[in-house]
């Protein structure tokens, strides 16, 4: 590097960085401090994650231990009630059949439990945060860069603090998935509420609606299509992150993919990948059709 410096002085040639020793001390200081804090509070952290652990295990057992045809039928019923579209139901049954035939049923169930829990948590946390963000411009200013970081930071990177804090296993896996999948939920809730027609909001004000009546009676119902798009995106991102989360000990399809990468098992890799795709498409079509159905009032437009 230094050789191609056209004879410039050292300072202008290479970017003046902090000395290596300083950087090393800084790194060690932060890492040790972080670990120290985690060690000191490990009991509390354990206690805090126990309900999550229990929820995850229960759901996973429910999915895995229930005979396959019941789950199969259950999923189709849910898809039917969400979409009311026989084509989507037929497609879903084909996808599920493909998964079963290639022997991936159990792993898929594990993944499904994981994604369900992560999505639920993302919605439960993301919706109120999105509402808060829509109500206050300051909140939006603070949260937007945070969400930017959450979405652009390579997902492997925040596996590190998650593992340091929570160790290896399903719970840290779910937490990592939630962090990765929650930004669209927050962003689209915020956007949806902010895009609600100003005139309609003014009408609600003119009739004396209080903030709660405005939120539940006008803002949320009218932003529901956008919020549903957020839910849809959250599910998709959760499915994508499940593979990465398998690096910290999450089982299911992701683990198979990881093993296939390590061993260059081409077929296993693609089969498991396609199983994920199948679930993704089922979720996507069903949730989109549901979102559209919520908008039945916008059908048969007059003009």
């Amino acid at each position: 590097m230094a050789s191609s410096c056209w004879g410039l002085p050292e300072l202008l040639c290479e970017f003046p960085s902090l000395p290596n020793s300083t950087l090393r001390h800084m790194r060690m200081g932060i890492d040790d401090g972080f670990r120290g804090i985690v060690r000191a509070y490990s009991d509390q952290i354990d206690a805090a994650t126990r309900p999550l652990q229990w929820f995850l295990n229960t759901l996973e057992h429910a999915f895995v231990d229930t005979p396959w045809f019941i789950i199969f039928a259950l999923i189709l019923v849910v898809v039917w009630f969400a979409s009311r579209n026989p084509k989507i139901v037929l497609g879903s049954s084909m996808g599920l059949a493909f998964i079963g035939i290639f022997g991936l049923w159990e792993d898929t169930m594990t993944t499904l439990a994981m994604v369900t829990v992560a999505t639920l948590i993302a919605i439960i946390l993301g919706l109120p945060i999105g509402i808060l963000m829509a109500r206050s411009d300051r909140m939006q200013k603070i949260l937007t860069p945070v969400l930017d970081v959450m979405q652009t930071m390579p997902s492997f990177v925040y596996l590190i603090p998650v593992v340091v804090i929570f160790g290896i296993g399903k719970v840290p896996g779910v937490i990592a998935v939630v962090i990765y999948a929650i930004p669209p939920m927050i962003r689209l809730t915020n956007l949806g509420i902010r895009l609600v027609d100003k005139e309609v909001i003014e009408a609600a004000d003119a009739f004396g609606a209080n903030p709660r009546q405005k939120l539940w009676g006008v803002q949320l119902p009218l932003s529901l299509p956008t919020i549903m798009a957020g839910v849809n995106q959250t599910i998709m991102m959760a499915l994508a992150m499940v593979v990465v989360a398998s690096m910290v000990g999450v089982g299911g399809l992701g683990k198979n993919v990881l093993q296939a990468i390590n061993n260059q098992f081409f077929t296993i890799g693609f089969l498991n990948g396609f199983a994920l795709v199948a679930i993704a498409i089922i979720f996507d079509r069903a949730s989109q059709a549901f979102g559209k159905r919520l908008q039945k009032h916008s059908e048969a437009g007059h003009d």
Binding site: E199, V200, E202, A203, A206, F207, G208, N210, L222
Partner: peptide
């Protein structure tokens, strides 16, 4: 007080109707 005033003493009609699209 303003909310009560709007609820009981005034009503408003808007240029672009401002109806709630999700209600009949």
């Amino acid at each position: 007080e303003l909310r009560e005033f709007r609820r009981h003493e005034t009503a408003m009609v808007f240029q672009k109707f401002a109806l709630l699209p999700h209600r009949t």
